[in-house]
């Protein structure tokens, strides 16, 4: 009898493998953990979008929980995301922008047209900071705690419901 049951072993193995692969079909390959989670925000030295004379570095992000949003004038989703960012700023979240692979004029035009929820915008025309952040598209959003450590990474579009359901709870969690 046990020998008979042993013959079922390959079938069981096949079913386990099949289930595993079936589950993989519905997984989103873009929903993966950031490699930078729980690591310090990468060092950088760049000028601000508003003032080419003013240089900022990672110390900009120390002292309070900050939401860093990577955007660009060339990115259509960033335009759709703007109302959510303005909403977050209204709720008292500190926002810092990274104008990624953009020109100064276009970046400024973008803010003039769609609003500016950012305390400061870091101007990253070559995408060097973006690269060190592991950004492979915009928009991407990072939550940085008061010690300058990355605590949350949102890849892609922040939906209107994400503001209340995801972002605000994360901000509050790391404020404590």
């Amino acid at each position: 009898m046990t020998r008979r049951l042993l013959l079922l072993l390959p079938l069981v193995g096949f079913l386990v493998l099949g289930g595993f692969l079936y589950q993989g079909l519905s997984m989103n390959p873009f929903e993966r953990d950031s490699a930078l989670m729980a690591r310090e925000f990468p060092a950088f030295e760049l000028t601000t979008l508003a003032d080419p004379e003013r240089t900022v570095d990672a110390s900009l992000l120390e002292g309070q929980v900050t939401l860093v949003n990577v955007w660009g004038e060339w990115c259509p989703t960033c335009k759709q995301e703007m109302p959510q960012l303005l909403d977050l700023a209204d709720r008292g979240v500190r926002l810092v922008g990274v104008d990624y692979k953009d020109t100064r004029e276009k970046g400024r035009e973008f803010l003039a047209e769609f609003g500016n929820p950012f305390e400061v915008n870091i101007f990253d025309p070559e995408g060097t900071l973006g690269f060190d952040l592991g950004v492979y598209g915009a928009p991407e959003t990072f939550l940085v705690d008061a010690e300058g450590v990355i605590r949350y990474h949102h890849t892609g579009y922040i939906k209107p419901e994400d503001v209340r359901e995801v972002i605000v709870p994360e901000v509050e969690r790391w404020r404590e």
Partner: peptide, 8 residues
């Protein structure tokens, strides 16, 4: 590369 973009 892995430090920035992960094992992916």
């Amino acid at each position: 590369m892995v430090r920035r973009f992960g094992d992916y």
